[in-house]
Design a protein around this nucleic acid. Structure first.
Lengths: 210, 210
DNA sequence: ACCTGAACACCGTTCAAGT
DNA sequence: ACCTGAACACCGTTCAAGT
């Protein structure tokens, strides 16, 4: 015991086990993760800087898997659509990651690169510099919210008192995942429409000024 | 000791202390809350059903404070704007509640009533029934995201590797809260534009069909 | 009815000790 | 360098005991 001749753990092995634990839906934690790896919690600290670092590592792995291989030469709006669809797919296929990352600062290199990519797309599209981060955040919040909804579509609202509309609308929905998919399509269409309209307005005022 | 002649706790007293603890920015928890009330953690269970119930109660208090007194007779788009602005103000003035409620199912009666109100507004505006919940969720996610951003505007992205655009765009932003305000205004304008366009499209196809 | 206090099964993190 | 094991200061929840 103590130090093994060949190391038991690596950051990669920890990340794999963390993703497995998260995807299983069981509560994620450093201790639970250590148990899954048949190791003491303290051992993990030789490879990673605690809970937040582990979550950030998992985020990075997912981003690499889902957000790479986006073609470079697309028109801006097609690129935006593809990026948002990829991000949403990432969350729907790994829904339990969502509550873990929404409150964490993004530091992982791959994740930063992905947002950087989106920034490039919007800048090349012609959006003003001051506005790009705002738009990224809007699109990101939409993808995240859509992922949360997909993860627990029945559990967003649970009326216990009589309602004028809400309970009826909830009952009227096609159940669960397919509703969430429809919601995503409607939201995405609206956001893309709004983006195109906004860009057109910018370009009109630019033309006026010249 | 044991049972006091006049009760020390009530749900209202617990809710007040919980809001104070949350607003202070210190980590929220049942034990920490009990300490603030000079009481044993187990005592709280005589009045409330644990951590989630406490959070839900605080949500309800905030919704009552910020989302009531919305005039009934406004045009749908003005009502939507007012509701989203009120919700966002709720989160900016109590930012530490946001991470606590994003992952909780909405059960509080006042909160449900507020979403029900929004449903009524959109239905009277002429949006189709199947779409109303989707739109509410989109607007809600926007208000929540905007609140999260306001709570920690510097901490959303923290690039540690070189970026093509992101680091520059971050540095270029007016700092903190005012940027978050601008972001909110842009996003709200885009969403309202998109809603109006969508409603117009619906009404056009309805006219076609008749 | 409403509080205490002990108990349980957890957390995340630090650090000395061991090889 | 990399693991164990003990320790610390926490969690949320249950339940018997007391008035």
């Amino acid at each position: 015991m103590a130090r093994p001749r060949t190391p038991v753990l690596t950051a990669a092995r920890i990340a794999d086990a963390a993703m497995e634990l998260i995807d299983s839906g069981k509560p994620f934690g450093v201790n639970a993760l250590a148990r899954a790896l048949s190791v003491q919690p303290s051992s993990l600290y030789n490879h990673l800087d605690g809970r937040r670092a582990i979550i950030e590592l998992v985020r990075g792995r997912l981003v690499e898997r889902y957000m790479s291989d986006i073609p470079e030469e697309l028109p801006w709006d097609e690129a935006v659509e593809l990026l948002v669809r990829s991000e949403r797919r990432m969350y729907t296929e790994h829904p339990h990651i969502v509550p873990l990352i929404v409150t964490e600062t993004v530091t992982d290199a791959a994740a930063i690169a992905s947002y950087d990519h989106m920034a490039g797309v919007l800048l090349r599209g012609g959006f003003p510099e001051e506005e790009v981060l705002v738009l990224i955040q809007l699109l990101d919040a939409f993808a995240l919210g859509s992922g949360l909804d997909f993860a627990a579509p029945e559990d967003v609202w649970e009326p216990t008192t009589p309602t004028l509309h809400l309970a009826r609308l909830l009952a009227l929905q096609p159940s669960g995942k397919t509703r969430s998919d429809q919601a995503f399509e409607i939201g995405l269409e609206m956001l893309l429409t709004a983006l195109r309209a906004r860009l057109a307005a910018h370009q009109a005022t630019q033309t006026d000024a010249s």
